[in-house]
Design a protein around this nucleic acid. Structure first.
Lengths: 169, 169
DNA sequence: CGGCCTGTTCATTTGGAATTGAACGAAACG
DNA sequence: CGTTTCGTTCAATTCCAAATGAACAGGCCG
């Protein structure tokens, strides 16, 4: 009695469901929240841009979720506002960015780089701490390990540009 | 009254704490459970192999956690049993694999490949579903999107070997 | 054999991230 | 102005993967 008894385009049709599920899975691998996958997935398979309310009703998620999800997707560069031509429309509509290059770039910039950077910082502090150890043998061992960690980070840094290059075709 | 009032090597010293934290952060980015990071981190900074019980007491985690964590780390090839020389030791000790190549390889094999593969499968089914759509215009659109998804997957597949190569030095 | 030690399994609990929903702008109308 | 509509924010709630811990398997040793 509260849910509209339907009659309109409320639920996802099987095809949309399938696509959304693919993306839900996809973003889980990337460690992003489910709603992100739902939203992007539905936009990805929709022929025309969708409004926040469209997402809320079609996906059965709260306005809050949709709003926050869209914010993150925008920050990732995975979604853009579709200025519905010259329309003097009040509502804003969203469409997906479908170039892999852009998606990967955004993900690296927003999710990978920050972690790499904070990791580097922590390892620097680590090297300091390790330097204060008395026993020379032990200090040598620690130095080796920290060095190795540092190498890993450098490798990580070197890999990213290559990734972008390959995925940009 | 229940916790041993200490007096021994129970807690982590500051250096160990720092290293463990680095790995805890690291594995969270990869979407792995915290305990994995703790265990690997402590092994990584320990001069000699550690037993399951060592991990339990030093990290204050349950035996169950340690056991499951070690299992996953073994499956990832990130940890190996250290046959304590010729010792007729009952307990088994573990040491970390510290070659980045090996770690990355294991992660790709166990965590990435399976998802890529199941993704491909889903997309194939998707293509079928899309083929049954009546409206030619719409079908064309769907075809384009599914095609794109497929391209993404192929790109992903192509990237992995390159990754391994670069990270293997 | 029977007690003992090491490690595994799995039903239950828990902690923390994601989601909700109500309150709050902000800006477009009359 | 007051009203309505669109969207954001954030404290409270929900939910689920990770952690727990007790029961269990199996090997060793007297």
């Amino acid at each position: 009695m509260d849910l509209p008894p339907d009659g309109s385009t409320q639920e996802l049709d099987p095809l949309e469901r399938q696509v959304v599920d693919v993306f839900v899975d996809g973003v889980r691998v990337l460690g992003l929240p489910r709603s992100i996958g739902e939203i992007y997935g539905l936009l990805f398979i929709s022929r025309s841009p969708l409004s926040l309310d469209d997402l809320v009703t079609r996906l059965n998620i709260s306005k809050g979720s949709a709003s926050q999800g869209l914010r993150m997707l925008k920050s990732l560069g995975a979604v853009r506002e579709a200025n519905g031509s010259g329309g003097t429309e009040r509502r804003t509509y969203y469409e997906p960015a479908v170039e892999l290059k852009r998606l990967v770039g955004g993900f690296i910039r927003e999710q990978i780089r920050p972690h790499l950077d904070s990791g580097r910082a922590k390892i620097e502090r680590l090297a300091q701490t390790a330097g204060t150890v008395e026993d020379p043998e032990h200090r040598k061992f620690l130095h080796d390990r920290v060095e190795r960690l540092d190498q890993w980070m450098r490798s990580g840094g070197r890999v990213l540009p290559v990734l972008q290059k390959i995925l940009g075709q």
